[in-house]
Design a protein around this nucleic acid. Structure first.
Lengths: 139, 139
DNA sequence: ATATTGCATACCTAATTAGTATGTTATCAG
DNA sequence: CTGATAACATACTAATTAGGTATGCAATAT
């Protein structure tokens, strides 16, 4: 259980988009600034577009912009958009081979835990993450 | 990112051991009660033994017992013992191909987040999980 | 002694991750 | 209206991880 590169790279891309403040930035430029693989980032941004986290504009002056204020975009939404399954902890829903379909009695526990972890993720909005990064740069 | 079967099955095994209250219970019996694959559980319990979460006794009347009170065993310890990498979120430590080794400025953020998530996991001790399960059974 | 347990090692298959490649479609500048 | 520049869609692939299974050895109680 770990955050994977999808979330990591996506976050870096989003912060780069955010810094452009409404001016569309292309995948190519994002990847140049952040040293990321272009095709992979395009692929990830497609997920974000679907989840309405970003808007995209094709064409020569095109690129990506945030679909809403940075304070309304949180880590949970990002992960959900970009990882196929975002921290779904319930064994029942995963359909594990030896899952006893609720008979183990732990479904409530997994739900409680999932809720708490999602809460932590939702607490980290894009603007907060940006602020944490700025703080570090200032040191 | 999700909890996997390792943690799920291990937790069920530990609760079964806990219910025996100090009387050693064999992997075979655990697996009979919880419908789990014996070899896999043995493998997982080996990790728990290493982490000093359980003690084991070989021989005919042997089996597993908790190494300490249920209130002193928490989900973080369990996951760390049983999953190779327990929720290590830092890209630097994972050695991702396009990780910029701190240059992305997000290392502090990942550390903050990791800490918060670990805190949630540590809050769930085995006796609390047991209590949550009992509550549900009573319904 | 022997049955019963844990324990160690190695192996295997399927799914997931982390990308890459190729080609198509929409927009703007000239 | 044409060419460049972007996004977008689909498919593919290599490497790693997950989820087990198999075999055999070591320790203990009866």
């Amino acid at each position: 259980m770990a955050v994977n590169t999808r979330t990591e790279y996506t976050l870096r891309a989003l912060l780069t988009i955010m810094e452009k403040a409404g001016d569309p930035i292309s995948a190519a430029e994002i990847c140049k600034i952040e040293s990321l693989p272009k095709k992979y980032i395009e692929h990830l941004l497609a997920g974000l577009k679907n989840a309405e986290v970003v808007h995209s504009l094709p064409g020569s002056k095109g690129g990506y912009i945030l679909a809403k204020e940075a304070s309304r975009i949180n880590l949970f939404d990002i992960m959900k958009a970009v990882e196929d399954v975002a921290w779904e902890l319930s064994c029942t829903q995963r359909g594990d081979k030896y899952c006893r379909k609720g008979e183990c009695g732990l479904d409530i526990f997994w739900n409680d835990l999932t809720g708490e972890l999602h809460q932590v993720l939702k607490h980290y909005t894009l603007d907060k993450i940006y602020a944490i990064r700025q703080k570090r740069s200032a040191q």
